[in-house]
Write a protein that binds this DNA or RNA. Sequence first.
DNA 1: ATGGTTGAGGGTCAA
Length: 261
Amino acid sequence: MRIATWNVNSIRSRIDRVEAFLDRHEVDVLAVQETKAKVDQLPTMGLEARGYDVAAVGHSQWNGVALISRVGLEQVSVGFDGMPGWGDAADAEARAISAVCGPPEQGGVRISSLYVPNGRKPDDPHYVYKLDWLARLREAAQAWLGEDAALVGDWNICPTDDDVFDIAQFRNSTHVTPRERAAFQAILDTGWAEVTRAYAPGYTYWDYYRQRFERDRGLKIDFVLASPSVAARVKGAFIDRAERAGVGASDHAPVVVDLED
DNA sequence: ATGGTTGAGGGTCAA
């Protein structure tokens, strides 16, 4: 089974690229973040024509996540147990969606598409919300550790200094602070394994400003965390850097992971 | 410190 995660930065402005990406790599399950669309605004026609089902949550021009699967979507749930909110309640819940993709007896996996809060600035209340969100996720996700499960998405955290193009430039910024890194590590410490880095080094996000992609000045913030049983099935992973190139790209590249069936 | 770009929506706000 081939799964992928991609912050698409508006699925409506990017639907042609999403469909081409699915075709190009024969992806079975794609988790997307920042759909920036209400559920009834999702452009699903081309996806359905390709045999994909869609489960999504989204209420405004911000946030919004979805799962796009051609191997089934069962037990869909929005958010996670104890997920904290920010602002409008309906909008706040649009950062996480989970479903079982594929029959469990045939290698199906519970996949959660996650859009971790950005944090904005270390002295911003949104930063505290981000830390709280990650702590609650760690607690809620423990229930899935014994299953075939994956936590995938835009984590908005650079776990190491090498995951930033210029750590000095991030001295007073989010994504690299010890507390954020500790929150991420705490999830790994419960038993989740980050499975992409070993196969796919390099950045996954490049700001639109200043030709950051052309100069490869990016961040590594999109990750796939696997439960022990799924981690043991990982065959490989890659970052589709070509998807970040050219006019009309998202600021994130997709990350693809292959699992033994 | 500031600015640079993109998307949604129709103000600016968020990233």
